[in-house]
């Protein structure tokens, strides 16, 4: 029988109904309409369905919809502040860090989680943090550059915020 799930998705209180064996990925896409979350494999190998669950980076294909009860979910759809893109989104565009773009939502969510934990990562740290996300188009070069550049800008903004505040 179906399950009623209440969770906070991208800041909004959302209720959805799903089957007990339905993945959170399917629930987000088919029930909540958040198709920015992509399915590339359904087995946790490609990272296209990356979201955060209470701040932790997860593959939403490996989580049940029912497990989202009472929890906080962030997806790519929640990254921009209105029409103001998140610095990572802006840098992905500037560096052409996407070609086909199907992996981009997962990369953005994974990169955001990385920079929240480590605002000043080395190239190697970026590469290992994003090793769970597959991209077949770019060879990762421009993705890594975009993340490093976004980190730099976010540090600058944070510093400015501190001095001003």
């Amino acid at each position: 029988m179906s399950v009623l799930v209440s969770s906070k998705i991208n800041g909004d209180d959302i209720e959805f109904v799903c089957e007990p064996d339905e993945t959170l990925l399917d629930a987000l896409r088919d029930r909540v309409g958040l198709t920015g979350v992509k399915e590339g494999c359904g087995t946790g190998d490609c990272g296209a369905c990356s979201i955060t669950l209470d701040g932790a980076l997860v593959c939403s294909c490996l989580v049940l919809g029912a497990e989202a009860e009472g929890r906080k979910i962030e997806t790519v759809e929640g990254m921009a502040d209105g029409d103001k893109l998140h610095p990572l989104q802006q840098k992905f565009l500037e560096h052409a860090a996407l070609q086909c773009g199907i992996c981009t939502p997962g990369f953005l969510v994974a990169s955001k989680t990385l920079l929240e934990k480590n605002p000043d990562p080395t190239e190697e740290e970026v590469r290992y943090a994003l090793a769970g996300n597959l991209c077949r188009c770019t060879g990762y070069d421009k993705i890594v550059r975009a993340v490093l550049d976004a980190a730099k800008q976010m540090r600058k903004t944070a510093k400015k915020g501190k001095t001003n505040g």
Partner: peptide, 8 residues
């Protein structure tokens, strides 16, 4: 087509 692709 970039903004559509970074916002989902």
């Amino acid at each position: 087509d970039g903004i559509d692709k970074v916002t989902g």
